[in-house]
């Protein structure tokens, strides 16, 4: 049957430049983005101001000119100096006081580093072995233990806090670095085990079977077959643990003991310390220094970070 050819639309679909719905979507996204960015912006510009500018200026505008500033040092002497934009950061790192101790936040930065590195290594080592055992070598009640582990991770820490204090006291490690590492390993285990178990379960089972046929045992398969393959999930786990342990406050304040206080605890002490003049700019600089490591990790590896929380949160 022949007839006139059907008229069909041709050419690219016309696009309206200003679709009201699109404008609405972008307006919503940009306004919320500004709301999310606002506190960071305020803190950054505040940390570069001098005290006069904080007293007289407002939180929206950065300070452009720096004058002479007078402060009192802990001994009570009046000090005059030319203000510079980096002064608050210098004071926060080297000089800020809590009580009578004026060493800045840098010792506690190193404490946080010393706490974080072994905690991350130990907790991931335990979790990767456990996750691998659960995924590939199940035994009686292994799923039951895993379920209790996951449900247990929802117990408020305050419930377990005091028994854990007693436990670490009995082990003779209370208020030392070992206690913090121990506690972070215990409470990091559920989420990390979940992460590794799900990852190993998603690998093709033929891989495991082939290694078995070739005569590899439990540890050899883990170390020589699975570990080299788990680099992506290891990255996720490291990011998750580093940010988690770095940001922790409760375990640091309870288990670390005074000389080992991590950065978050020190930061809080800087704010609550009522000695001398309150230096808001220095406090804000210390706040940013405390948040710097997790933020840097986040901005450098955002994709893995998102994967980590998604994988950890939604049981796959």
């Amino acid at each position: 049957m022949t007839g006139t050819p059907a008229i069909e639309p041709f050419g690219p679909k016309p696009k309206r430049l200003f679709d009201p719905a699109r404008i609405g979507v972008y307006a919503f996204l940009i306004i919320t983005a500004l709301y999310f960015l606002f506190p960071l912006y305020v803190v950054i510009i505040t940390s570069f101001k001098d005290l006069d500018a904080i007293r007289d200026g407002n939180i929206f505008w950065p300070q452009l000119k720096y004058g002479v500033i007078t402060t009192t040092d802990p001994a009570g002497n009046i000090v005059t100096r030319q203000a510079e934009w980096w002064h608050p950061w210098y004071r926060a790192w080297f000089e800020v006081c809590t009580g009578l101790e004026c060493k800045g936040i840098s010792p506690n930065f190193w404490n946080s580093v010393i706490i974080t590195i072994p905690s991350v290594i130990v907790s991931i080592a335990v979790a990767i072995t456990t996750g691998y055992a659960l995924a590939n070598w199940p035994f009686r009640f292994s799923e039951g233990f895993f379920t209790v582990l996951i449900v247990g991770s929802f117990i408020p820490y305050q419930v377990l806090l005091y028994p854990m204090v007693l436990l670490t006291k009995n082990m003779g490690i209370y208020s030392t670095l070992s206690a913090v590492i121990f506690v972070h390993t215990v409470f990091g285990l559920p989420i990390l085990t979940l992460l590794f178990r799900n990852y190993f379960a998603s690998l093709p089972v033929e891989l495991f079977k082939a290694a078995r046929v070739d005569g590899a045992g439990f540890w050899r398969i883990l170390l020589q077959v699975f570990l080299p393959m788990s680099l992506p999930i290891l990255t996720v786990a490291v990011i998750l643990q580093v940010t988690g342990i770095w940001n922790d406050f409760l375990f640091g304040v309870v288990f670390a003991g005074l000389p080992n206080y991590p950065m978050t605890v020190k930061l809080n002490n800087i704010f609550t310390s009522t000695f001398g003049v309150k230096e808001y700019n220095v406090e804000m600089a210390a706040t940013l220094l405390t948040g710097a490591i997790p933020l840097a990790i986040y901005f450098l590896s955002g994709r893995y970070f998102v994967r980590g929380i998604a994988a950890g949160a939604v049981k796959g």
Partner: peptide, 20 residues
């Protein structure tokens, strides 16, 4: 932008908002 606050410590968040 939406997710970066989640990378911060509650201590940092608290003091930032206390300032605002």
């Amino acid at each position: 932008i939406y997710l970066y606050p989640f990378a911060l410590s509650f201590i940092v968040t608290g003091h930032v908002w206390a300032w605002i």
